Amino acid sequence: MDLKLFFNPTEVDVDQSPTSFQSSIYVNRDKMPDHEGMDIALIGLTEYRGGDNSSELASAEAVRKQLYALKKGYGDYGIIDLGNFRNGPKIEDTYLRLKEVCAYLMEKNIIPVLFGGSHDLDLGQYYAYETAEKLISVLNIDNAMDFDGEHIASNHIGKIFKHSPNYLFGYCHLGYQSYLTDQKSIELLDKLSFESIRLGVVKENIKDIEPIVRDADMLSFDLSALQALYAPGASNAKVYGLTGEEACQLCWYAGQNEKMSSVGIYNYDAAKDSKDNKTAFVMSTMIWYFIEGYYHRKGDKNFKSNDYLMYEVHLGGEPETIRFYKSKLSERWWMEVPNPDSEGLFNRNRMIACNQSDYDLALKGEIPDRWMNFFNKV
Rank of each mutant, 00 (worst) to 15 (best):
residue 260 M to W: 13
residue 274 S to Q: 05
residue 328 K to L: 13
residue 290 F to V: 09
residue 246 E to A: 01
residue 275 K to D: 01
residue 309 L to Q: 02
residue 257 N to H: 12
residue 255 G to E: 06
residue 241 G to S: 04
residue 273 D to T: 01
residue 269 D to I: 09
residue 246 E to M: 05
residue 306 N to G: 10
residue 312 E to F: 00
residue 248 C to S: 13
residue 264 G to S: 10
residue 314 H to D: 13
residue 284 S to Y: 08
residue 249 Q to I: 14
residue 257 N to M: 03
residue 300 D to N: 12
residue 287 I to Y: 14
residue 316 G to M: 12
residue 251 C to P: 01
residue 297 R to E: 03
residue 262 S to A: 15
residue 283 M to Y: 05
residue 298 K to Q: 09
residue 310 M to I: 12
residue 311 Y to L: 07
residue 301 K to L: 10
residue 318 E to M: 08
residue 312 E to H: 00
residue 245 E to R: 13
residue 249 Q to T: 12
residue 246 E to V: 02
residue 332 R to Q: 15
residue 268 Y to E: 02
residue 274 S to M: 07
residue 315 L to M: 08
residue 250 L to K: 07
residue 263 V to Y: 09
residue 315 L to T: 04
residue 310 M to R: 08
residue 303 F to S: 01
residue 322 I to H: 02
residue 247 A to S: 12
residue 283 M to I: 05
residue 257 N to P: 02
residue 251 C to D: 03
residue 288 W to L: 07
residue 286 M to N: 09
residue 325 Y to P: 00
residue 267 N to C: 11
residue 268 Y to A: 04
residue 268 Y to C: 01
residue 251 C to K: 04
residue 250 L to I: 15
residue 278 K to C: 06
residue 304 K to E: 12
residue 307 D to I: 02
residue 297 R to I: 03
residue 246 E to L: 02
residue 320 E to F: 12
residue 310 M to W: 09
residue 297 R to A: 07
residue 284 S to I: 05
residue 271 A to G: 09
residue 246 E to P: 07
residue 252 W to K: 05
residue 261 S to G: 14
residue 252 W to C: 02
residue 300 D to C: 12
residue 323 R to L: 02
residue 316 G to I: 11
residue 300 D to F: 03
residue 270 A to W: 01
residue 264 G to K: 08
residue 319 P to A: 01
residue 252 W to Q: 03
residue 323 R to P: 00
residue 262 S to K: 13
residue 263 V to T: 04
residue 266 Y to H: 15
residue 243 T to C: 02
residue 315 L to D: 07
residue 268 Y to K: 06
residue 328 K to Q: 07
residue 267 N to P: 00
residue 264 G to Y: 06
residue 318 E to Y: 13
residue 252 W to P: 00
residue 251 C to S: 10
residue 247 A to C: 09
residue 259 K to P: 05
residue 258 E to F: 03
residue 292 E to K: 08
residue 270 A to H: 13
residue 269 D to C: 15
residue 296 H to C: 12
residue 243 T to S: 15
residue 314 H to F: 14
residue 275 K to Q: 04
residue 288 W to C: 03
residue 282 V to N: 07
residue 271 A to I: 10
residue 266 Y to E: 08
residue 327 S to T: 03
residue 250 L to Q: 08
residue 284 S to V: 09
residue 284 S to R: 10
residue 267 N to T: 04
residue 301 K to W: 08
residue 263 V to F: 08
residue 294 Y to P: 01
residue 332 R to N: 15
residue 290 F to Q: 10
residue 288 W to M: 04
residue 249 Q to R: 11
residue 256 Q to D: 04
residue 328 K to P: 01
residue 314 H to G: 00
residue 319 P to K: 01
residue 314 H to N: 13
residue 268 Y to H: 11
residue 316 G to N: 09
residue 261 S to P: 08
residue 273 D to W: 00
residue 327 S to Y: 07
residue 243 T to P: 06
residue 262 S to I: 05
residue 261 S to N: 15
residue 241 G to K: 06
residue 302 N to V: 15
residue 258 E to R: 05
residue 292 E to P: 00
residue 300 D to L: 03
residue 262 S to L: 04
residue 279 T to G: 09
residue 305 S to F: 01
residue 262 S to Q: 13
residue 248 C to K: 14
residue 316 G to R: 07
residue 296 H to D: 12
residue 287 I to E: 12
residue 295 Y to F: 09
residue 332 R to F: 09
residue 262 S to P: 11
residue 304 K to P: 03
residue 310 M to K: 07
residue 312 E to N: 01
residue 269 D to E: 10
residue 260 M to G: 10
residue 273 D to M: 01
residue 244 G to M: 01
residue 262 S to Y: 12
residue 304 K to R: 09
